[in-house]
């Protein structure tokens, strides 16, 4: 069995946290991974400078969807600035599976983080890291 699919990943995949859509919402973004067709859409609300509520919907592989679910728990309640600067390593630590030799799956794992950064960039003008600049090109 591949060690990518440890229990925690499968649990988040089968029982995603903060799954759904906020309507109305203060910020929204969507992103795809053209390689896999993974798709993640994120909505959030702010309370002052905090990300008070966040939800995601999407479809795709277990890694992309479980990572999105884990990211929700990581982000909710943090300040906008904290989330905008959240290093990808923090999400990868949370996922806790070896993706280093698997750059294709790394993109799956980091898709939702890029979408969150894009939503903040659009709603609050925070910086969009180079890594996800492609999300703005259409």
């Amino acid at each position: 069995m591949s060690d990518l699919y440890r229990e925690l990943i499968l649990d988040h995949y089968k029982n995603p946290r903060n799954h759904g859509e906020l309507d109305p919402c203060d910020a929204h973004a969507q992103g795809q991974n053209p390689l896999c067709g993974d798709d993640v859409s994120i909505t959030m609300n702010f309370s002052g400078d905090d990300v008070s509520e966040i939800r995601f919907t999407g479809r795709g592989c277990a890694i992309s969807q479980a990572a999105a679910s884990m990211l929700m728990e990581l982000v909710e309640g943090k300040t906008v600035a904290e989330v905008a600067e959240l290093p990808k390593e923090e999400l990868l630590d949370e996922i806790g599976v070896p993706l280093a030799k698997n750059p294709a799956r790394l993109k799956c794992a980091l898709l939702s983080l890029g979408v969150v950064k894009l939503a903040l960039h659009r709603a609050r003008g925070t910086a969009l890291p180079e890594e996800w600049a492609g999300f703005e090109e259409r």
Binding site: M1, S2, L4, Y5, G60, C61, A62, I63, C108
Partner: peptide, 13 residues
């Protein structure tokens, strides 16, 4: 029960 990418990943193992 599984997305094609997960299928391919497990098949790789």
């Amino acid at each position: 029960c599984a997305h094609p990418h997960d299928v391919a990943q497990i098949l790789d193992s």
